[in-house]
């Protein structure tokens, strides 16, 4: 085994007469190099999440991890190209600073506390129901309004259409009218 490795050692290959600056110098790792996207288990066709040009992205996943995001050459919008932000998309979705746990800060608290996702969802639902009741306006200026001004929402413009649709639908049914978006600011 060691002999195999040694025989591939660039110096020995050079001594055997191969060009020291070409093939003789190649390590076995170099010989095995291939673009990692070839090993991807799946490729998802996606769209860049930064500006609104809507550049096509190909998202390569290997062993449950994103291994590369690059432009989709089929796209008539972007022809496979990406700007620096779009090119940083892999880092956006894989960087260690991403938050992955629910955090809770109690009133007047000085630090975060961990919280179970299901518990958090129940607590939030309780607060919506309670605040809605407490701040319900049936009439305003003598007119029927059926609403609450006690609950408001501000969304970013990287929310999907489907998400915005459920947001508007749910809040409207709840009577919460202060529903706003980055599109305003």
């Amino acid at each position: 085994m060691a002999g195999g490795r040694i025989s591939r050692w660039p110096l020995l290959r050079q001594l055997r007469g191969e060009d020291g600056r070409r093939d003789a110098a190649r390590s076995s790792r170099t010989d095995a190099l291939r673009p990692r996207v070839e090993r991807a288990d799946t490729v998802a066709r996606s769209v860049c999440p930064f500006c609104a040009v809507g550049c096509g992205q190909l998202v390569y996943v290997e062993n449950g991890r994103v291994t590369q995001i690059e432009g989709d050459p089929d796209s008539p919008i972007s022809r496979g190209r990406l700007c620096p932000k779009g090119s940083a998309s892999k880092q956006l979705v894989t960087h260690p600073g991403r938050a992955t746990k629910v955090l809770y800060r109690r009133p007047y608290g000085t630090d975060w506390e961990p919280l179970d996702l299901e518990t958090a969802m129940d607590m939030i639902a309780d607060r919506v129901v309670r605040t809605r009741r407490e701040t319900w306006q049936q009439t305003f200026d003598g007119k029927e309004v059926r609403r609450t001004l006690g609950i408001a929402h501000l969304g970013g413009a990287t929310l999907d259409n489907e998400e915005n649709y459920l947001i508007k639908k749910l809040y409207t049914a709840l009577g919460a009218i202060q529903v706003e978006n980055q599109a305003r600011v």
Binding site: G20, R21, R22, A24, A25, R26, S27, T30
Partner: peptide, 24 residues
């Protein structure tokens, strides 16, 4: 760079490009 590399880490590829082999 390639000329002076004593370990063969730098080499000329089949595309005539110059590459450092980090394992060497």
């Amino acid at each position: 760079c390639l000329d002076v590399c004593p370990t063969g880490a730098l080499f000329r590829t089949e595309f005539d490009t110059v590459v450092v082999q980090s394992d060497v």
